[in-house]
Computed example of a mutant assay.
Amino acid sequence: MTVVSSKSPKSLVDLRSLLKNLPPPAEDSGAAARARQAELTKPPGSLGRLEEIAEFLARWQGRAIPTLDRPLVLVFAGNHGIVAQGVSAYPPSVTQAMVDNFGAGGAAINQICKTFALNLKVVPLDLDSTTEDFTRAPAMNEADTAAYFARGMASVPADADLVIIGEMGIGNTTSAAAIYTALFGAAAAHWAGRGTGVDDAGLTRKIAAIEAACALHFAFLGDPLEVLRRLGGREIAAMAGAIAAARRASIPVLLDGYVACAAAAVLHAENPDAVAHCLAGHQSVEGAHADILARLGKKPLLDLNMRLGEASGAAVATGLVRAALACHSGMATFAEAQVAGKTEN
């Protein structure tokens, strides 16, 4: 498998450079897709967001008629030192157990991938250890942050035509909530949710941990990549890398839920254009995900009260993408069907 080629970043300076001067969409392909939609046997705009999806993919794939022949679900897994603060209902060992379950085909994402003919790649990130407890120290050092970002980049095959981004990691909703608190302001209680199902006492500990972390790292929170390093996790850094690599290779991305959007939020804060090639697969019920999507300028394709993670919501949304592309590529035009078009009065 050929992966997206790029010089591997070694530092936050390298990451900043990588996120500048990103390739634009192919507006000519988008215009051609829009023109085709106008000729298909339907009233103009009658397929609603399905038409928007087809045009979006055309712009970012650079094809007037996009494809969905090689879609890839990427699930990154990492463990978090913040779990020591009692913020999760489960221990870090569950992350490895779930990765094993993915490998055995027993998880929800396996069934969804089978249903929608999606390739699945799970990338475990040094699960035998955790990041640092970010209430006491930065979660990662600079070299590790860049290295996990690079691993995410290297996970994106150059021939993919859609990448679906997701994660697995006990404690990562606390990390995501801390990132949102740092990037967007507002109280930690606004961003924190129950994650895997913590009780009231666990939620209180979660909020307290986020507040403590933001106080400890306050002087650095104006720098989005420092926010990623200090409050993030290995899988969040890797998801950010995968999103960036897809952009550089003109591959559109479907974002999963609350934690995946934390990676997108870091990129957006560094350069708002860095996530222009991303669609929000769904709106999670975790935390303030609706608020997060609004800040990223993303309207979710689905809202099914899901909060599982592991790319499950975005993977389900690929059903809509397939329907959009089937209509765009397979419908007859008025001329082909010998159907009279709209008359001008």
Rank of each mutant, 00 (worst) to 15 (best):
L304N: 13
G81W: 05
I236E: 06
A260K: 01
A182G: 05
A246R: 01
T174Y: 01
L47R: 12
G106P: 03
S6C: 11
D200H: 12
A186L: 11
P91L: 09
A177C: 06
V83H: 07
E344G: 04
A189Y: 00
P92M: 03
W191C: 03
K298G: 03
E235H: 07
W60L: 04
N110E: 02
I292E: 08
I165D: 02
N21H: 11
I251N: 00
A294R: 15
M168F: 02
G330S: 11
T130V: 10
F76Y: 08
I243N: 06
V123E: 10
A294Y: 07
A143Q: 14
P138F: 09
A249S: 06
V275W: 04
A137N: 10
D69P: 02
Y180N: 04
R322F: 10
A262V: 11
Y148I: 00
V75K: 02
L127F: 04
L325Q: 00
Q61L: 07
T135P: 05
K121E: 15
I251L: 01
A245D: 02
V94P: 11
I82W: 08
S46V: 14
Y258C: 09
W191R: 03
P9F: 00
V75S: 03
A340M: 13
H268I: 05
T181A: 13
C327Q: 13
D128A: 09
A314V: 06
S17L: 11
T343G: 12
P91V: 06
T343S: 15
K299G: 07
S250C: 13
D273R: 14
P157D: 12
V87S: 10
L183T: 08
A143H: 11
R136D: 07
K121H: 14
R307V: 04
A201K: 13
E167H: 03
L308R: 11
A192I: 12
V266Q: 01
S129I: 10
N345Y: 09
A108Q: 09
K121Q: 15
R230N: 11
R322C: 07
G232Q: 00
C214E: 04
A260P: 11
S88H: 12
D161E: 02
A107K: 00
L293I: 09
K206H: 08
A108T: 15
D69G: 13
L127H: 03
V285D: 09
G171Y: 02
I112G: 08
R136C: 14
